[in-house]
Nucleic acid binder design. Structure first.
Lengths: 236, 236
DNA sequence: GTACGTCTGTACGATTCCGAACACAACACG
DNA sequence: CGTGTTGTGTTCGGAATCGTACAGACGTAC
């Protein structure tokens, strides 16, 4: 059913014509947290389209193993952008499942053909590309200028925008890698947010309790990131 | 002359067919450092293509006036990417002239039409888009993880890759905004690089003296950024 | 229930960087 | 040749974060 597809499935795929969708024949897969969908040095053979509830991190890492999240993709988007818009090549980035969920996989070469020939497909994917680039540059500024606590609050809200619940399952160690900070720093920031009742946490779990309070505590990056996502979903 | 255009002019424009080039009718302008070519809240009516020697910074800034450079564009590229690949809208980023030089200006709506209809134009501009996204995510990681001195060394090399000389004219205050750090930090980093003979500096000026030494002192981001630019230029 | 591995809270010194201020140097302009 | 403006070097205290270490809490497996 088409309407169901646009709300619970991937929004980009949901806007493809049924003829194109049949030809692309996406395969649905369920993935668990920390699953690696694309490796940095790999030339991806597939393009992935998360369904609602699934969130994937696009990550860059150093030779020494340090890593930072460049951006996140939910059911509004796809990855990897590079392989869609240009010839296949290693992307240098890693795609890591952050929130469990369903993901549609499409053959990269096949999709690239439709991207080239079908204006509707192209406009949709380029529209997301623009949104993603916008998100990444915002995160670049945020990573440089804002404090851990504010960035943590922002991060939780950004994820919340892409899932159905206030419950998130992840370790603080995982979080420290996403934010690019050391683990004890995350522990302190989590506690700080909890004492003010903004979140609750226990082992492997963080849940949002006060959405508005969290927004107020987060850095100024939250609002534009939320707004641009909302607008993108609306105009899609 | 076609060959002159590809070496001293903009590389992307140089690969357009002469028929398309005539239709686009780019206007050449000379710009000085700190000229603002695109404002964050503005819907750009033009797309800009730097010639060799001109370098433009793509900058994101906060409400409070702090700013960080997201990436740089030389004669290998164009800006703003958003306005080429999607419908016109404010980009949220600022384009600031960093190294004086010539820039070709093309009407955004006109170029967008060719981007839509001409596969050659589209492939060229998307190829750069991929490169730019790669550069931005690398800078995101660098901004989060690396120290001022290493980032300064990297920055000088990145600019060096896009100009003809080892002489650069800019204030340390300007530099501090690009790197997103406070000005005295730049002063200290510049001195540190100078005492080891890697650079020379005086008021409003920095010149590279030891290219290899600077590379060794810079963070690990320099090499991949240099390599991907070189490869892009070669395969263009 | 017990043992083990994983995750988390906390501590401490060391380091980097910020924020602000000030004096001096270089240059531009009259 | 003064004078004002701009850019630079340096200082200081304080804040944020790192690096490392360790102990306790939690959950799982046997």
């Amino acid at each position: 059913m088409a309407t169901a597809k646009t709300t619970t499935g991937n929004l980009l795929l949901g806007r493809f014509t049924s003829r194109v969708l049949r030809a692309l024949a996406p395969r649905e897969e369920d993935h668990a947290i920390t699953d690696v969908l694309i490796r940095p040095d790999e030339t991806p053979g597939s393009i992935f389209f998360p369904h609602f509830g699934a969130v994937v991190s696009i990550i860059r890492s150093t030779e020494s193993g340090a890593m930072v999240e460049a951006g996140v993709v939910g059911n509004e988007g796809m990855f990897n952008v590079h392989t869609v818009i240009t010839k296949p090549a290693p992307t240098g980035a890693e795609a890591l499942v952050q929130i469990d969920g369903r993901v549609s996989r499409v053959d990269a070469a096949l999709l690239h053909n439709y991207f080239r020939d079908d204006e509707r497909v192209r406009d949709l994917l380029l529209s997301f590309t623009s949104l993603f680039l916008h998100q990444v540059t915002q995160n670049l500024l945020c990573n440089r200028l804002h404090a851990i606590e504010q960035r943590l609050a922002k991060w939780l809200l950004i994820i919340r925008d892409r899932i159905a619940t206030d419950e998130m399952h992840m370790t603080q160690d995982f979080l420290s890698h996403m934010l690019g900070v050391h683990r004890p720093g995350v522990s302190i920031a989590v506690s700080a947010l909890e004492v003010d009742g903004l979140i609750k946490h226990s082992r492997n779990r963080i849940s949002i309790r006060d959405h508005a309070g969290l927004l107020a505590r987060s850095c100024e990056c939250s609002a534009p990131l939320h707004a641009s996502l909302k607008q993108f979903r609306a105009t899609l």
